[in-house]
C-alpha cells in the first residue's frame, strides 16, 4: 500500500470537526468517489472526530490518500490521549440504546468504512483508523 498524500489536522473544537469532514468530503469528491461512499466516509469522519472532542477533549487526525493494487482509497487515523475505552468489544457490538453516542459513533463508523481498526488503552488514549476504497467504475 502506498501513501499518496497526507495531511495532519488538529481536533480541539467543533470548528475542527467541521473542517475535518469538509476536507474528507473534498478529497473523496476529488478522487471520484460515488456519492454514497463520499457520504459514508464523511459521516464516519464526523463521528470519530466528534468523539475525540466530546470524550477526550482534544486529539489529532491524519488524512491520507492511499493506493493499493490499482485501487484508490482514503485513510483517516484519529488519535487522542483521552481516557481510553474500557470494554471496547461491548461498546462496538452494542446497539444505539445501550451505549449512547460513543458506541453509535464507533460502531456506525465501523459499518460505514471498508476497513476499521481501533486500539485503546485505558488512561492512555485511543487510535481509530478507517479506510474507504473508491468503487471500481
Amino acid at each position: 500500500m502506498t501513501v499518496l498524500s497526507s495531511e495532519n489536522l488538529i481536533l480541539a473544537s467543533e470548528d475542527d470537526v467541521m473542517l475535518a469532514r469538509r476536507k474528507v468530503r473534498l478529497l473523496a469528491e476529488t478522487l471520484g468517489f460515488d456519492p454514497f461512499a463520499t457520504a459514508a466516509i464523511t459521516t464516519a469522519t464526523s463521528e470519530l472526530c466528534r468523539n475525540v472532542c466530546v470524550h477526550a477533549v482534544k486529539g489529532t487526525a491524519r488524512l491520507e490518500q492511499i493506493g493499493s493494487g490499482g485501487r484508490t482509497g482514503i485513510r483517516l487515523e484519529v488519535r487522542d490521549e483521552g481516557p481510553g475505552i474500557p470494554d471496547i468489544d461491548r461498546v462496538l457490538s452494542a446497539g444505539q440504546r445501550s451505549v449512547g453516542s460513543l458506541g453509535l459513533g464507533l460502531s456506525g463508523s465501523r459499518r460505514l468504512a471498508d476497513e476499521f481498526r481501533i486500539e485503546t488503552i485505558v488512561g492512555r488514549g485511543t487510535v481509530v483508523t478507517v479506510v474507504k476504497w473508491k468503487r471500481p467504475t
Binding site: 463520499t38 457520504a39 463521528e47 453509535l104 456506525g108 463508523s109
Partner: peptide, 14 residues
C-alpha cells in the same frame, strides 16, 4: 436525501 437515508441505515441509526 438518498445518500443521507442510506448512510443512517448503514450505520445502524434508528
Amino acid at each position: 436525501r438518498p445518500v443521507v437515508a442510506a448512510t443512517l441505515v448503514r450505520m445502524g441509526f434508528r
